[in-house]
């Protein structure tokens, strides 16, 4: 992290409790610098998705402070949430695609919401979909795709508006080795172009031979792993 540069993501004493039940996240302190590529790992149910969801404001923390790209999540009003989300490309663990929309429409959505002109939308969407290897299935409906294909549509939608921050929640969970490698290459490329990436996975192979920082969640508590 460069001196004096505000972090892209910063959590300070963040806890999240669902209802009266278990603590999904306990007192998390985490800073991720701009341009950094960080792996977030930990067993199933350890709170990885919950942490990501806090960052794009799908959940509110029970306590603690969160800032993303210098926006304080705690004081964000309902009208500001869309502005935050346009800076963050999220690859959802469960894809969150519109089933009755085509591949093209699903990806185009992320550009339409920011008011891009239709001709520009068309060009960029095609490019990105070809980039994830679905160029021949542009007009296929999302329900008619395999799990792996759906995951790649979700990836395309998350990156199509070139967000400065990418939150990837198990983006390779449904992919074979070849596709996984392609996705990792795509992530490296986006990171090289300046995007900050927080990559949640429990697949050790993805970060075993990397020089990247890896943080580990265990029962909602954070521990540096590598």
């Amino acid at each position: 992290m460069r001196e004096g540069d505000a972090p892209a993501i910063r959590l300070k004493g963040v806890s999240k409790r669902f209802g009266l039940g278990n603590l999904a996240l306990a007192d998390i302190d985490l800073e991720i610098a701009k341009g950094e590529f960080v792996f977030l790992t930990g067993p199933s149910g350890s709170g990885k998705s919950t942490l990501l969801r806090l960052l794009f404001c799908a959940e509110r923390p029970t306590s603690g402070e969160i800032s993303v790209d210098e926006m304080n999540i705690g004081t964000l009003s309902g009208a500001q949430i869309p502005l935050l989300r346009r800076k963050i490309g999220v690859i959802f663990q469960d894809f969150k695609l519109l089933n009755n929309y085509t591949v093209f429409e699903n990806v185009a959505l992320a550009l339409e919401v920011i008011g891009l002109r239709p001709d520009q939308v068309k060009k960029r969407v095609k490019q990105v979909i070809e980039g994830v290897g679905l160029g021949t299935k542009l007009n296929r409906k999302a329900v008619q795709l395999s799990g792996g294909e759906q995951q790649r549509v979700a990836i395309a939608r998350a990156v199509v508006n070139r967000p400065p921050i990418i939150l990837a929640d198990e983006p390779t969970g449904n992919l074979d080795n070849k596709r996984t490698e392609e996705v990792m290459l795509l992530m490296e490329e986006l990171n090289a172009r300046g995007a900050t990436i927080l990559f949640a996975t429990h697949d050790e192979r993805l970060y075993q031979n990397t020089h990247r920082r890896v943080v580990r969640l265990e029962d909602g508590k954070l521990e540096a792993a590598q």
């Binding site: 799908a58 309902g78 869309p82 502005l83 989300r85 346009r86 969150k96 959505l109």
Partner: peptide
């Protein structure tokens, strides 16, 4: 409902 939630998640404003 799902469609509305997804639109919100990809950064659509309420008026959109």
């Amino acid at each position: 409902q799902e469609e509305l939630e997804i639109l919100r998640l990809v950064g659509a404003t309420n008026s959109f």
